[in-house]
């Protein structure tokens, strides 16, 4: 008798909350969850925010290589919407995340910004139509340093500590711009908000950033989950042909999009891996 009561109580006070938490997590990491509400690509009422995580060395090089390729891609003037050209002014605010003291990544991000904004063709396309209403200008960007999630050759004992420090820095920078949720789940007009998309490739910092954003969505901090913010895009390194990297293995069931650059890795990685061509 006593045992059944104990079991029942255990189920009610431990089992049910646990089930509820698990259910909430499955909702959170379901890629078909809400996307941010948008009325048009360039709507001054609805600023956009892209967050890019740069690692160091190879990861930074690959990220900038694919972004450069996207913003310099040719446009077809007849069908501009079907081209692969990324218009950098589509993002009114960009946050670049670099590891602490990584001045090379920081300066490469700056170089990219200086290069990409003049390449915008949106104004040309809009001339004579609704130019003034859609011209959001060059927008703005931040370069933010976070402590490294893992130093090279760091011992396993001190690793959790630095991961936590990195996590706290990620939380602070994700909270840097927030606004309130309005009816219909849109943010307050014209106000900068959470990143719409977190774009990353392999560094450890990226894994920490993604997990931090999931935790924030779990608690729906400032309505970030309600508004469908912080969708996550992970691009596996081009150097990974058959097996994903450590970050890839950690993130393949968590990120909204998991892109691989070799068709054989689509099956090799499992999870949400999809091959949509080479990006670098």
């Amino acid at each position: 008798m006593a045992i059944t009561t104990t079991l029942l109580l255990l189920f009610i006070f431990l089992g049910l909350p646990l089930l509820a938490i698990l259910y909430r997590i499955t909702l959170l990491i379901d890629p078909s969850r809400n996307k941010p509400i948008r009325h048009g690509r360039r709507n001054i009422q609805e600023p956009t925010h892209l967050l890019i995580v740069l690692g160091s060395g190879g990861h930074t090089a690959e990220m900038l290589s694919m972004l450069s390729r996207a913003v310099t891609a040719p446009t077809d003037p007849l069908e501009p919407k079907k081209s692969a050209k990324l218009d950098w002014k589509d993002f009114t605010h960009r946050t670049w995340v670099v590891g602490q003291g990584d001045s090379i990544s920081a300066s490469r991000a700056k170089e990219f910004e200086d290069m990409a904004i003049p390449l915008s063709t949106q104004e040309d396309l809009m001339v004579g139509k609704v130019k003034r209403a859609t011209d959001t200008g060059a927008g703005s960007y931040d370069l933010v340093e976070v402590p490294r999630a893992r130093e090279i050759h760091q011992s396993l004992v001190s690793a959790p500590g630095s991961a936590l420090k990195c996590m706290q820095a990620c939380y602070e920078l994700l909270m840097r711009y927030t606004t309130e949720t309005r009816e219909g789940h849109a943010g307050v007009a014209k106000q900068r908000d959470f990143p719409d998309v977190i774009l990353c490739n392999g560094p450890a910092t990226a894994a920490v950033m993604v997990f931090t954003s999931v935790v924030m969505r779990f608690f729906d901090v400032r309505g970030c989950s309600t508004r469908g913010k912080m969708r996550t895009v992970y691009v596996e390194s081009w150097a990974r042909v058959k097996k994903p990297s450590l970050s890839g293995r950690l993130l393949k069931h968590v990120v909204d999009r998991f892109l691989v650059q070799w068709p054989q890795l689509e099956r090799g990685a499992g999870g949400r891996a999809e091959f949509r061509g080479v990006f670098v």
Partner: peptide, 11 residues
């Protein structure tokens, strides 16, 4: 390419 992905994710 990347542009297609970002468009889809940005909504």
């Amino acid at each position: 390419g990347l542009k297609g992905i970002l468009d889809e994710e940005m909504g």
